[in-house]
Design a protein around this nucleic acid. Structure first.
Length: 307
DNA sequence: GTCCAGGCCAGAC
DNA sequence: GTCTGGCCTGGA
């Protein structure tokens, strides 16, 4: 793997374990938009366009086998300080998949299907709010709500043509937004109270984000569940995508389907499904979950066909 | 009009 | 502790 920065654009070269679709369309991130063959992504203070390089571009850069463009991603310093962490570039996904492929034939198939998937390390506070919104909701709506909240309270970071992009608000900024505005502009419905109350609990340090980062997984999970609108599934998403807790195993409808299709027999108890995940995949349950989830949703595993 | 979506909460047992 | 019904909203 090699990283270049040319004219404020970053290039990640000769890294096969990096497929934008498998990273962004995997339910872990919401601040992206499919444009042409790539993705417009807002992360921290950055607004970037990410796409796979074609043969000509690879040749011009110096005969690389494959590569990713992060347009407007910044300098190598930006890479070291932000992108490297955001994309978890220190994790060797090739090794990880090889390990998983020896587990069982289902995980093997999911790992082959999901080559290039990576679990992001995003901002903890942003993940808390994002996944409170995600409950009983669908991705296009979640994305709209989060963009609206960013526009409502966050700093403007970039404008192009008539589009403006906003950073996700800080705790301080979001604490000033009212339930009424969240309902009216962000269309989050009954989740508005959850957001306002949870932000207040964080501001008042009834729940400390620093503490959560330092606690062992089980205790961090318990701590997050004190927040309104945060249950077991949402807490696991927050820990997996916002704090790189690989043992977190979010059980959503797709995981219920895929676990019952391959590992369990019509188990409906979420807690038991989660325990099965922990037993099967141990301290890497969250990573296995990502491959299984992606495979299940893309292939509609466990969905009864009509007719 | 009806149904449901990447769950949580409150109340009942 | 475990189970059930209700829920904002927008699109099928």
């Amino acid at each position: 793997m090699e990283v270049l920065s040319i004219n404020n654009d970053l290039y990640i070269l000769n890294e096969k374990e990096f497929v934008p679709k498998n990273i962004f369309e995997n339910g872990q991130a919401f601040r992206w938009e499919k444009i042409n063959d790539g993705y417009m992504v807002v992360a921290d203070k950055y607004v970037v366009y990410i796409e796979e390089l074609n043969k000509e571009q690879l040749q011009n850069l110096g005969n690389y086998d494959n590569g990713i463009l992060i347009q407007n991603g910044g300098t190598l310093d930006d890479y070291e300080r932000f992108w490297k962490t955001y994309f978890n570039m220190d994790r060797d996904y090739f090794l990880l998949r090889n390990e998983f492929m020896s587990y069982d034939k289902y995980l093997k198939e999911a790992c082959e299907f999901g080559v290039g998937l990576r679990v992001l390390k995003q901002d903890l506070f942003e993940m808390i709010i994002s996944f409170i919104i995600s409950a009983n909701n669908q991705i296009p709506k979640i994305k709209k709500s989060i963009n609206a909240i960013s526009e409502l309270a966050g700093d403007k970071i970039y404008s192009i043509n008539n589009n403006s992009y906003y950073k996700f608000p800080t705790i301080e900024q979001l604490s000033k937004v009212t339930v009424e505005d969240l309902k009216k502009y962000a269309r989050v419905g009954y989740r508005a109270e959850y957001i306002v109350n949870s932000v207040k609990m964080i501001v008042d340090e009834e729940v400390s984000l620093e503490k959560i980062k330092s606690l062992p997984y089980e205790e961090a999970h318990k701590e997050l569940c004190k927040l309104q609108g945060v249950g077991p599934k949402v807490a696991d998403c927050i820990l997996l995508f916002g704090d790189s807790r690989d043992e977190a195993f979010p059980v959503d409808t797709w995981v219920i389907k895929v676990m019952n299709e391959y590992y369990l027999d019509n188990e409906k108890n979420m807690k038991k499904i989660k325990e099965a995940g922990a037993k099967l995949f141990k301290d890497k349950a969250g990573l296995a979950q990502q491959y299984l989830f992606f495979y299940a949703r893309e292939n509609k595993v466990g969905v009864k066909k009509k007719g």
